[in-house]
């Protein structure tokens, strides 16, 4: 396995540059839904970027749009997705197919539905190697075995012959990661890769991802609802709400001093293992479905404890604020306690 020397983490040129991405779903006879609305972010080589949000935040749709995996009917995708300077959204389909898998790989939440249930793991992994790496027969099989071993699957020779249902959830997710890595991608997009797994298995998978990013110099986009996962893994974090980024910052800045009331509210509402017992939780009132349409005002306004009249007067802009970007008219003060 190739182990590149750790390059300087932050090269100036971004590997992935998402600019003003928007995704609109139109259903026949139904309302149009803007699932992703002007999302911009960059991923530099070797960087790990987190997209955090609850259901309906648009985080998964963003990743699917980047990979051009959304159905074409009833979906409009706008903006640009520059990968190495090429706009993925306008690339011919066959070139996109080459990039998918070879340069960008994706790992999904449910490993079972991402694997073909009637084909042994080994064949599925070698297939990828044969298609993108030009390996043949025995060489490909040996490479597949090595990959499985590398992602921590014990006894890979035997596992190669097994079908997906014979593997546990954690093992399946490892197999998927092995397939994603088969082509030494430069960018790995992981969409809730540990949500279906137990915590001890989750810890194994996250360690594995960390290690792989470090060893191969690939970039990682981690999509999750779990702030804890992001805190230990990502260099930069984008918090999404109702299709837009509401706050972006380095993880230390974001977790140390959340400025958007939504970020702060999320942090105050999850019980922390290391917090003194009896510390009260401060839930965010309402539910993620109680949103205001962004063109009328801030989508979070209906649930926001810091709401001003201006918040429902028009859409707040994503402003650059030194160490972060923030979409809020009345952010939390630095080091302010989150209001109960």
């Amino acid at each position: 396995m190739r182990v590149t020397d750790s390059e300087p983490l932050l090269r100036s040129e971004p590997l992935l540059d998402v600019r003003d991405l928007s995704v609109t779903f139109t259903r026949k006879g139904g309302p149009t839904v803007r699932a992703v609305d002007g999302v911009s972010f960059t991923v530099r080589p070797g960087e790990t970027v987190g997209l955090v949000g609850e259901s309906g935040s648009g985080k998964s749709v963003t990743s699917l749009a980047v990979m051009r995996l959304l159905p074409r009917r009833g979906v409009q995708v706008g903006g640009q997705v520059l990968f190495d300077g090429d706009d993925l959204l306008t690339l011919p389909r066959d070139r996109m197919r080459d990039i998918r898998g070879r340069d960008i790989a994706m790992v999904f939440q449910d490993p079972m539905s991402s694997l073909n249930p009637v084909v042994p793991i080994g064949i599925q992994v070698t297939e990828v190697l044969e298609r993108h790496q030009d390996l043949k027969g025995e060489t490909a099989r040996a490479a597949a075995e090595e990959l499985l071993f590398r992602v921590g699957i014990p006894d890979p020779r035997r596992r190669l012959k097994e079908y997906p249902h014979q593997l546990s959830g954690g093992m399946r997710q490892r197999a998927l990661i092995a397939m994603a890595l088969a082509c030494k991608p430069r960018l790995l997009i992981a969409d809730e890769p540990t949500t279906a797994l137990d915590v001890t298995i989750q810890a194994q998978i996250i360690e594995l991802l960390k290690e792989l990013v470090q060893d191969t110099g690939a970039s990682l986009v981690m999509i999750t609802h779990d702030l804890g996962v992001v805190a230990g893994l990502c260099d930069t974090v984008h918090v999404m709400y109702s299709g837009r980024i509401v706050e972006s910052a380095g993880r230390r800045e974001l977790f140390g001093e959340p400025r958007h009331p939504y970020t702060g509210g999320l942090l105050a509402s999850v019980p922390r293992l290391d917090a003194p017992r009896g510390a009260p939780l401060h839930p965010i009132p309402g539910s993620p479905t109680d949103v205001l349409s962004w063109h009328k005002g801030c989508a979070f306004a209906p649930r926001c404890p810091n709401r001003l009249d201006a918040c429902i007067g028009g859409p707040p802009r994503l402003e650059s604020l030194g160490d972060r970007s923030l979409r809020c008219l009345n952010p939390l003060e630095q080091n302010e306690e989150v209001p109960a």
Binding site: H165, Q166, L167, S168, G169, M171, D198
Partner: peptide, 8 residues
């Protein structure tokens, strides 16, 4: 059947 799924 995979190990952890038996009881699940």
């Amino acid at each position: 059947m995979s190990l952890s799924e038996v009881e699940a």
